[in-house]
Design a protein around this nucleic acid. Structure first.
Ligand SMILES: NC(=O)c1ccc[n+]([C@@H]2O[C@H](COP(=O)([O-])OP(=O)(O)OC[C@H]3O[C@@H](n4cnc5c(N)ncnc54)[C@H](O)[C@@H]3O)[C@@H](O)[C@H]2O)c1
Ligand SMILES: NC(=O)c1ccc[n+]([C@@H]2O[C@H](COP(=O)([O-])OP(=O)(O)OC[C@H]3O[C@@H](n4cnc5c(N)ncnc54)[C@H](O)[C@@H]3O)[C@@H](O)[C@H]2O)c1
Lengths: 227, 227
DNA sequence: CTCCGCTAGTGCATTCATTCACAAAGCCGG
DNA sequence: CCGGCTTTGTGAATGAATGCACTAGCGGAG
């Protein structure tokens, strides 16, 4: 390989978005390999665990440098370290959750985030009845304390689980407070504030996509109309 | 257009996956247009609402036939009907949820699914303490009643919100019972049973992707090392 | 030291998706 | 009835992602 892993700062070889989307899969697979006590892993095995094909694994990993040994495979620990560092998981990311309803409550009490390097450090709601409620270790704060908490705690990620009608406003507010990334669960398109990256998760859409395919499969089966 | 909307059965022009993924966005946008009392909508407006570009909207819609009028736009009601029928939303889809924990509970009580044509008609859990619990109108059933419920109620979609270690087993069981589509929230790769389509939603992955981009943006900013 | 087996890394062809840009086509005002 | 305005539908160009198939290179056996 010609590009050494760049002693000073970061390389910067512009990673394809499709590859970025698969990093978490590799991350998960490597964690489980590591816990299983494996020292090395081949692209074939990683592919199997991540549910993708081996050539893709190799190409994806090659964007980050040369971490494999031909004839052997990848060093699990080294590769895990590299991916963790690319994902910025060397220290914990603090998140603020806005909208402590059904979904918000589940998210706050979800242990899996912490295991993967994320921590819901604050939660706010407009509803005065919710403010002061305790969920695990976290006490729901009033909307007005958002800015202070974001700045004081160094929160970089916002999670929106309010009603859809409030989502845009909340996103704007989060942007003003200095949050740089937002994960939005409200089923509405949000215009991203300047400098803020938004990802949307819409569960109803996922079901619709399943329904679409199911629909097609069954109408394909009934090519001959029933007698 | 050369392909008439095929009087008998369905056309079958193989819709690109990327297009399928956007149908729910259009669906949502059209619902809101319709509720707002609009009769027609241009590709430009739809694009704005769905957060994509206008050419893409037109190309996507063109796979389903000719629903627009040049110089005018699309008839909201007709287009909504078409999309609803493509998504198979002419009747309600029944779902079974497996694993009534934090997340499962939030999903069951979520009204938004019903509005979009989905109904969690059954929920099961292995934990005997959970069985019999009431969530809204639904009573949690024992794992053993899964097959009967799926068959009797005509359930086509399974939702997995168990712990990751149980996900594969649950998926296999759902497959055996005749479920054809699965939405999996457990952060693990599941091998799909024969004839079953699986979609995964991994929230920690979403956060990791945000973290990756944030990481990159800030390391791009610090090109000059601090003094 | 050499040769063999294995697996990473990658160039290339192919497939899939996006976007541009323009002709075809409906509407409306005169 | 005609001509201008608007917006669709789509061919063709471009770009992104995938996957094959080959080469380079390491480790271990003999
Ligand atoms: N519950 C689910 O399983 C589920 C599934 C998919 C999507 N969603 C979406 O997630 C969002 C939340 O769902 P939910 O079921 O938790 O709803 P919910 O009604 O239980 O909770 C919404 C919460 O947001 C708060 N809120 C409203 N406006 C606010 C504002 N401007 N600022 C701060 N807080 C505000 C409300 O006080 C309430 O506590 C909704 O947009 C919903 O469509 C939920
Ligand atoms: N809570 C969240 O916000 C959240 C967020 C992202 C992902 N997830 C994932 O969703 C899943 C559920 O999360 P949770 O927080 O609700 O966990 P939880 O521990 O609260 O709930 C899990 C439930 O699954 C049940 N269960 C376990 N094995 C089962 C089996 N074989 N058959 C049927 N039921 C079984 C348990 O009895 C329990 O009720 C986990 O895989 C988690 O990683 C949860």
């Amino acid at each position: 390989m010609s590009d050494p892993q760049g002693q000073p700062g970061t390389p910067r070889p512009q990673i394809p978005e499709a590859t970025v989307g698969r990093l978490p899969l590799y991350h998960r697979a490597l964690i489980s390999m590591h816990q299983g006590g494996n020292d090395t892993v081949s692209s074939e095995q990683l592919a199997e665990m991540a549910g993708v094909n081996a050539a893709k694994v190799r190409k994806d990993l090659s964007y980050f440098g040369t971490y494999g040994t031909r004839g052997v495979g990848y060093d699990v620990e080294a590769l895990l370290g590299e991916i963790r560092s690319d994902l910025g998981l060397t220290s914990e990311w603090k998140c603020v959750l806005v909208g402590v309803g059904n979904l918000g409550t589940a998210l706050i009490s979800f242990a899996g985030f912490r295991e993967r390097g994320f921590h819901v450090a604050a939660a706010v709601d407009v509803d005065p009845d919710k403010v002061g409620t305790r969920i695990g270790e976290l006490v729901v704060a009033p909307q007005s304390s958002l800015e202070t908490m974001v700045r004081d705690e160094g929160i970089a990620i916002g999670i929106i689980s309010t009603i859809p009608a409030a989502a845009q406003e909340v996103a704007d507010e989060l942007g003003r407070c200095g949050v740089r990334s937002i994960l939005n669960f409200a089923p509405t398109v949000i215009e991203a504030p300047e400098g803020v990256l938004i990802r949307n998760v819409d569960l109803a859409s996922e079901l619709e996509i399943l329904a679409f395919h199911d629909q097609r499969r069954s109408s394909a089966r009934d090519r001959r109309p029933a007698v």
